[in-house]
């Protein structure tokens, strides 16, 4: 995951400006060291660094910089992300502690700094490594507890998300993004048509994480320590977050374990209800799982579009383009009833 500063141009570019940003806020004796760049993310660049000043001991922090700001971006800008992190942190939901937000004077673009939370995020390790057996035993229940607490928050606090396309109409939001990439995928069209024809009635909107799944959770040997990646948050049906969590693409080789390739629906629903959540409507969740497969397919089209168009050229994004058909396969097999 880490790269040496001396060979990482990404980190070299931000070092001086990050130091200046820290000193503007914490004084001239503040310092940074041990910068490393994390793996390229879908919408953000992540740089880890040690922060110290003359009062506190060294603290590991994380810089998140926006890297995808094109039209039809499905991702929230850093400012509302940072506001959400503060809301969640205040509510006791496990998130990295928000430290400060970048501003124009920092010259680092849009982004923010949060505390580093140690643990593992790689799904394959979480589903297979014997060291995480205790964490796996608690995983579904912890997911249920965290989502129930998030969905119980007063959505008025996140009213700034009301105009996000996904808050207004998630199917229309996916359709608009898909159309903007000007690619033809009849399987995605079938998925969108099915969603349109089978749409459930509207529900009372809750604050949704929008990307709550195995891969966006920091887990240590004892369980989930932090929920990452709030750039898809919006207001909507709480079953949407549950459907996305259960979407087949996030089962990582264990399709019979719908909660992140680790746990059962029953474990999740029991914990969700015990922590104030409503009874899980699994029929509704199924609709959102289909939606999740359409959404994930569209996101992969987006990555290939960014690569081919040159805006975000990266080998993994090229691979995403060829991964789209695999998601379409899962989508059609789910619609046919061969996959649950």
């Amino acid at each position: 995951m880490a790269q040496d500063l001396s060979i990482d141009p990404d980190v070299a570019q931000v070092r001086d400006r990050l130091l200046a940003a820290v000193r503007r806020r914490y004084g001239e004796r503040a310092g940074i060291e041990n910068l490393v760049s994390a793996t390229l993310g879908g919408s953000n660049r992540t740089v880890l660094f040690d922060f110290n000043d003359d009062r506190a001991s060294t603290r590991r922090l994380v810089l998140r910089q926006e890297t995808y700001a094109l039209a039809q971006s499905p991702f929230l800008a850093p400012h509302p992300q940072f506001r959400l992190l503060k809301i969640a942190h205040r509510a006791g939901i496990p998130v990295p502690e928000p430290i400060f937000e970048l501003d124009d004077d920092d010259g680092l673009g849009r982004g923010y700094i949060v505390a580093c939370v140690l643990g593992e995020t790689l799904p394959k390790r979480l589903v297979n490594d014997p060291d995480f057996s205790t964490a796996r035993a608690r995983f579904s229940a912890q997911c249920g507890e965290i989502l129930a607490r998030l969905h119980a928050l007063d959505p008025v606090a996140a009213e700034f998300l009301a105009d996000v396309p996904d808050s207004l109409d998630p199917v229309a939001a996916q359709t608009a993004r898909y159309d903007s990439y000007a690619q033809t995928h009849p399987a995605i069209e079938l998925g969108l048509r099915w969603l349109h024809l089978n749409r459930p009635t509207a529900s009372k909107p809750c604050l949704l994480h929008g990307d709550f799944r195995n891969g966006n959770l920091i887990v240590d040997h004892g369980g989930i320590r932090a929920v990452l990646d709030w750039e898809c948050a919006h207001l909507g049906d709480p079953m949407e977050d549950i459907g996305w969590l259960c979407t087949r693409s996030w089962r990582f080789g264990y399709p019979d374990r719908p909660i992140g390739g680790i746990g059962t629906r029953k474990e999740f629903a029991t914990a969700y209800a015990a922590n104030g959540g409503v009874d899980v409507d699994w029929e509704r969740v199924h609709w959102w799982e289909v939606f999740g497969l359409v959404r994930w397919a569209v996101l992969n089209v987006m990555q290939a579009h960014g690569h081919i168009g040159g805006q975000r050229r990266a080998i993994p994004f090229a691979a995403c383009g060829r991964n789209t058909c695999v998601i379409e396969y899962d989508l059609l097999m789910t619609l046919s009833g061969e996959y649950d």
Partner: peptide, 21 residues
């Protein structure tokens, strides 16, 4: 549906044949 599935199966057979049932 069957027409589209057949074409998706073609694409998966090129991209990730191990993912096909």
């Amino acid at each position: 549906f069957e027409l589209v599935l057949a074409h998706v199966v073609n694409n998966v057979s090129v991209s990730r044949p191990d993912q096909l049932e």
